[in-house]
């Protein structure tokens, strides 16, 4: 590690270390190299996106006019948003219970709680298919209007996402100094005030990490979604896998690129709008 410090860089200013910056940039480059390829291919005239044949915007025009593709994208995003919210709340509660309390069979409870992480996706997908079919929920959800017809998928996504949130938030809570909580109570704060003003801010990085994880898991899930979806709820991954037989077109790349660009632009705008002193949060 760098022992010679440059002027102005304190021993803990790791953010200013050149070696860390270089390493950081290198890993980011590796992470993004395939993504740039994917973006480049969204401008490719080749239908299969294997060989570069020429530049075009056609794929964007086609994606823009492809109502099915947009519907699938909208379904996926809706499912991911709702599942993330529910999963983050449930997961945090489980994390809090595991962190705060001793109770009988706790080790077993923790083990069971991590089963959705362990279980092979297809096993969970099939078991939910059997459950929803036998409980009549499969046929029942079909009669609902959008977005309520996504209910089975959302239930399934929450079920496999929230243990991930729980485990991430829990690992964050381990570092909590209980004296802060006691100090808060000594100063006259109620249980609820303490929770809201002391514990939640401390949990925040864990909550954000957990929520991002849940969103990522939900957005990209194919197997469980496939087995829990009704006849009218095509999601983006289901569409993509179904395209494999006939060839995944660069339209999909165009749609994915649009998703990335929109997310980045929205985030940058949100950051600009935030007051500078708040922007560090999270």
């Amino acid at each position: 590690m760098a022992q010679t410090l440059k002027p102005g860089s304190g021993p803990l200013d790791y953010g200013n270390r050149t070696w860390l910056k270089i390493l950081f940039a290198a890993i980011f480059f590796a992470l993004y190299a395939p993504i740039f390829t994917l973006i480049a291919f969204s401008f490719n005239t080749d239908k299969r996106g294997v060989v570069w044949r020429g530049f075009t915007f056609d794929n964007y025009v086609k994606a823009w006019n492809n109502a099915d593709l947009q519907e699938a994208m909208l379904n996926s995003l809706t499912i991911a948003f709702i599942s993330t919210i529910i999963a983050t709340i449930l997961g945090s509660m489980v994390a809090l219970v595991l962190w705060r309390f001793r109770f009988p069979f706790k080790a077993g409870y923790e083990g069971v709680m991590s089963l959705p992480i362990v279980i092979p996706e297809i096993c969970m997908g099939v078991s939910l298919l059997l459950f929803f079919t036998n409980a009549g929920m499969m046929a029942w959800s079909v009669s609902f209007v959008w977005p309520f017809n996504l209910i089975n998928i959302i239930i399934a996504h929450v079920a496999f996402c929230f243990p991930f949130v729980a485990i991430v938030v829990r690992s964050r809570l381990v570092g909590f100094n209980r004296q802060l909580e006691e100090a808060s109570k000594d100063l006259g704060a109620s249980e609820w005030q303490t929770f809201w003003n002391v514990i939640v801010p401390f949990m925040m990085p864990g909550l954000i990490a957990g929520a991002l994880l849940a969103f990522t898991l939900s957005l990209d899930d194919f197997v469980i979604t496939y087995f829990t979806s009704g006849p009218e709820t095509v999601t983006f991954p289901v569409k993509v896998y179904s395209l494999v037989r006939r060839g995944v077109s660069p339209e999909i790349n165009a749609a994915s690129t649009a998703l990335i660009v929109i997310t980045v632009v929205a985030t940058v705008l949100a950051m600009k709008l935030q007051a500078p002193d708040k922007s560090g949060k999270g």
């Binding site: 980011f28 992470l31 993004y32 395939p34 993504i35 994917l38 954000i208 991002l212 969103f215 990522t216 957005l219 990209d220 194919f222 983006f236 991954p237 993509v240 896998y241 494999v244 995944v248 999909i252 790349n253 994915s256 998703l259 990335i260 997310t263 980045v264 985030t267 999270g282």
Partner: peptide, 15 residues
């Protein structure tokens, strides 16, 4: 943080 996660919002197969 978002930039680290963003690549994983692209479908696994496409990635």
């Amino acid at each position: 943080l978002l930039l680290v996660i963003l690549p994983f919002w692209i479908n696994l197969l496409i990635r």
